[in-house]
């Protein structure tokens, strides 16, 4: 009898361990974020000064906007490395077309969006119609876009960023324009992914492309649309970055491309597609941004920042794969 009791106790604990794993997979990133905040409270209390929060949140927004697109692309088992090229292209277009005239801001942004959409279309067509692996297709596109931008400017970007674009630096306490944009876009796309048939189809295509095709989902169209969205988000982020510095910068947004992938993956979106979502990515973005800021606040070298980021990504991926192995 005693034995039976002990055994059933054991059964419960196994069951609990399973739940724990599922819990880690589902909520691990939020817990990690909470722990990070606690650590920051001890190590770098300055992080919680209103000014610092405002900066962190604005930077998080810049990264977060690209990361929305990156998450969508990852959900269909894709990857978008070309976003780095799009930042630069956007910055050049805004300066060339805008050329210091505030009334040209709208045409300039529209031009950048149109060109971005073309890049996304190119990515999508390469991946779907030519069956180029996403890594290769978008890496090629990155080189192409960067090269084309440089060829166009002959290495010396012309034009001026219109002053009025500085509006992105406006803020109301912590709530800056980029932050509002980030939150708004998240709200829209969280709803799109959960509540609309388009969102369902994105998950279905990422989860099992053959079953999706046999279910009548236009799989190529869905994948192409997601790459286009990914590029458009990168343009939006590029506009915000350009407005922030207010001049054309050849290295604008460098590092944001890989960080956007890292944020999505840390947030629980899987490389194999079909799993994850934007809430996790928000947490992933915050983790990465807070870590970077803490490194600065602690007066450590930038290299340390890379090492810590690398460790966080590896840790997250390991945790998720451990959690994914059942029973």
């Amino acid at each position: 009898m005693a034995l039976a009791k002990r055994k059933s106790g054991l059964a419960l604990s196994r069951d609990n361990r399973w739940r724990l794993r599922k819990f880690v997979a589902d909520y691990g990133v939020y817990i990690a974020l909470a722990i990070l905040l606690l650590v920051a409270a001890v190590l770098t209390p300055k992080l919680f000064a209103v000014d610092t929060i405002a900066v962190v949140m604005r930077q998080a927004a810049q990264l977060g906007i690209v990361a929305i697109g990156q998450t969508l692309v990852l959900l269909v088992a894709g990857l978008d490395l070309s976003v780095g090229g799009i930042f630069i292209m956007t910055s050049v277009v805004v300066a060339e077309v805008g050329n210091g005239r505030n009334e040209m801001i709208a045409p300039a942004i529209l031009t950048a969006l149109a060109l971005g959409a073309l890049v996304g279309l190119g990515n999508g067509l390469l991946v779907t119609k030519r069956r180029v692996p996403p890594f290769v297709a978008t890496l090629g596109m990155l080189v192409l876009v960067k090269g084309a931008t440089q060829a166009y400017t002959r290495g010396v970007p012309g034009g001026f960023v219109p002053e009025a674009l500085g509006i992105v630096n406006q803020s109301w306490f912590v709530l800056s324009v980029p932050l509002a944009l980030w939150l708004g876009l998240n709200a829209i796309f969280i709803f799109v992914l959960r509540g609309t048939s388009y969102g369902r189809r994105v998950y279905a295509v990422g989860s099992n492309i053959e079953a999706a095709r046999l279910s009548g989902i236009p799989v190529d169209a869905i994948r192409i649309s997601v790459y286009v969205l990914g590029s458009l988000f990168a343009v939006v982020s590029g506009v915000v970055l350009t407005g922030y510095v207010l001049y054309v910068d050849r290295f604008i947004g460098s590092g944001l491309d890989l960080d956007s992938i890292a944020a999505a993956v840390v947030g629980g979106t899987a490389f194999i597609g079909g799993r994850g979502g934007l809430l996790g990515t928000i947490a992933g973005v915050l983790i990465i941004q807070i870590l970077s800021t803490m490194v600065v606040l602690l007066g450590l070298d930038v290299e340390v920042q890379f090492i810590i980021k690398g460790l966080v990504i590896l840790g997250a991926v390991t945790l998720y794969s451990v959690a994914a192995t059942e029973a």
Partner: peptide, 13 residues
């Protein structure tokens, strides 16, 4: 498994 189901997605979806 390979053509009918989205194994990572819910019954509802």
């Amino acid at each position: 498994k390979s053509q009918g189901l989205f194994t990572a997605l819910s019954v509802r979806i």
